[in-house]
Structures are given as C-alpha cells and as structure tokens.
C-alpha cells in the first residue's frame, strides 16, 4: 500500500520534471529571441527568412478582398461607370487647376527662398505602393506594403496617402515593407498647429480615427477644426504635410494639460494606395536603433518650420 503510493508520487514528479524542463528550454529560447530581436543583433537575416516564409500566407490572406474588388469591377453597370467617369473627369480638372496654382506658388517660394538664401527644397523621389490587406500584429496599427528595398525604400521613410501623413516605414524586406501608422500607440510625430504655429507632438492612441496631443497646457490656444501639420523637426517628415484636424479639446480644470483629440487627415483604415517619400534630409542626432524615431526630435529647429 505504502510502496504503491510512493511509486505514484515518483511517477508524477518525474513526468513533471521532464515536461517542466522542456517548457523551461522553450521559454529560454523564446526569451533569447525576444532579447535578440529587441536589441537588434544579428536577427535581421532570420527576420527576412521568416518574412519570405510568411509572404505566401500574406498573399493568400488578401485573395478574398482582391476577388471582391475584381467582382465589383466586373459587374459594374454602364450607368455607374459613366457616373464614375464623369466624377473622375471633374475631379481631374479640379486637380489640374490646383496643380497649376501650386506650381506657381512653388516657383515663387523657390525665388523667395533664394532671396533669403535658404537652401532649396529638394524634390524628393517617391515610390507608390499598394497596401497588402494583411492585418499585422494584433490590435497594433501596422500594415504591409508591396514595395521594399528593391524599389529603393529604406527604414524611417515617411508614408502619405491622398489625405495626408499615413505613417513611416519601420522594417523593410526586399519586396515588402512594414509601415507603422500614425495611430499606433507607439508612434509619435512632431507637429505644428497651423493657426498659431505652436509646436507639439501627436501620439497615436491605437484607434485609427484618433490622435492625441498630450503635451499642451490647459490654457493653450487651440480650437476645434484647427489644422495640424508636420513641423519638420525630427528629421523624417518634411514640414507642412497635413496630419489632421482637431476634433475635440477637453480642458479639465483639475488637470494641468489639455486633452486634444485629432482626427487624422489620412484614411488610416481605408486607404489602398500610399506614397513612400524620401526622408527629410536633416542631420539627426544619433538615436538608439529601436526607439520610435519621431519622438527623439532634436530640439533646435534647423529649418524654417512655419508653412
């Protein structure tokens, strides 16, 4: 009787230790991976291999939405097409006139800059890209685009869509790149309030329809519908790109800081096409490799930031 129970105890403990040991080994392996990936040592090739391995899955995932798009185009009626064509045409005319105006303003701007002997804005190269409809990292605001280092894209390049600033590239594979959206809770971007010229930082909230300006005092002069632009500090985004519009200002008397909510100008959860711009050529202080770069803005303005 006694031996039996002792044997029982022995068996269970030995099984536990074998299982526990294996669990420990796997936990240690995972921890090593996490540390290596976090500190960015020697894992980029592993990541690239994994990215290649995962890319067929990512292509498969976007087949349904691509198929729906295709079906929609195929069964569009004549009337819809005509209507769409008309609206596109009128849109095009509008844009063309706007572009003409823009060009003359740009020339004037260049001349004035020459007068002030400020360096000319360099027209940056840009790469158009499609967003692969793949949900990256659960609940995080990241997307994958279908262009990578083969198309000349590098890390920390600004990405915009039709409306405004969309995000920036965080890691680049040969044929795809990962873009962190403005609204990711780990993203921050140096901004300026157009009406007052006040500088601040807009951070993501995790909600694609909301950014937050958390560092402005309660009595700041900011109102609903104020336009928020990039300030050009921080060295990634050029000055004057639209970021969003203030949609709500909460001034709690018990809090020293105001809570300013901004509606992003870019359609963060709806865009299909984006443009990857060249990073603004401002010398930056060496930042730690993994830190969200937009937050480490050098304090001194190296460029006229006022749009």
């Amino acid at each position: 009787m006694e031996t039996g129970s002792r044997q029982y105890i022995r068996v269970t403990t030995s099984r536990f230790s074998a299982l526990g040991l294996r669990a420990l080994i796997f936990a240690a392996l995972s921890a090593a991976l996490i540390v290596a990936d976090y500190s960015g040592v020697g894992l980029s090739s592993v990541r690239n291999v994994l990215k290649y391995a995962a890319s067929p899955l990512q292509w498969i995932v976007q087949i349904p939405s691509a198929a729906i798009d295709l079906i929609n185009t195929q069964i569009a009626t004549r009337e819809t097409l005509i209507r769409e064509n008309q609206s596109l045409k009128s849109n095009l005319t509008e844009r063309e006139t706007a572009l003409l105006r823009f060009k003359s303003v740009q020339d004037e701007n260049d001349r004035l800059r020459e007068l002030l002997s400020i360096k000319k804005d360099e027209r940056s190269a840009e790469v158009g890209a499609m967003i692969l409809s793949v949900k990256q990292d659960h609940l995080r605001q990241r997307v994958l685009i279908d262009q990578g280092s083969d198309a000349g894209i590098g890390r920390d390049q600004p990405v915009i869509d039709r409306g405004g600033v969309y995000g920036q590239t965080v890691s680049v594979g040969p044929t795809t790149s990962e873009v962190i959206l403005l609204s990711d809770s780990g993203h921050a971007i140096p901004v300026i309030i157009e009406r007052t010229g006040l500088r601040s930082i807009a951070v993501g909230t995790g909600d694609p329809h909301e950014l937050l300006l958390p560092y402005l005092p309660r009595n700041t002069d900011v109102e609903k519908n104020d336009r928020i632009l990039t300030s050009g500090l921080g060295g990634i985004f050029k000055a004057g790109l639209p970021v969003g519009i203030v949609k709500d200002v909460k001034r709690d008397p018990s809090q020293p800081l105001a809570r300013i909510l901004v509606e992003p100008a870019a359609a963060l959860d709806r865009s299909h096409e984006v443009l990857v711009l060249e990073a603004a050529p401002i010398p930056r202080e060496p930042a730690p490799a993994n830190a969200p770069s937009a937050t480490n803005a050098p304090a001194q303005p190296t460029k006229v930031a006022k749009p």
Partner: peptide, 24 residues
Amino acid sequence: DAFHGSILGENALGYVAIAYLMRR
C-alpha cells in the same frame, strides 16, 4: 510572431507557457 511582425518569441513564450500549464 513572424506573420504579424511582433517581437520574435513573444507569442511563442505565451503559447509555450499555457501549453505547459494545460499539459501539466
């Protein structure tokens, strides 16, 4: 982790931990 671009090993650790508890 590879599919979603999170830190490598993050989900792996979580999965192993609860697989261990479950098997235990």
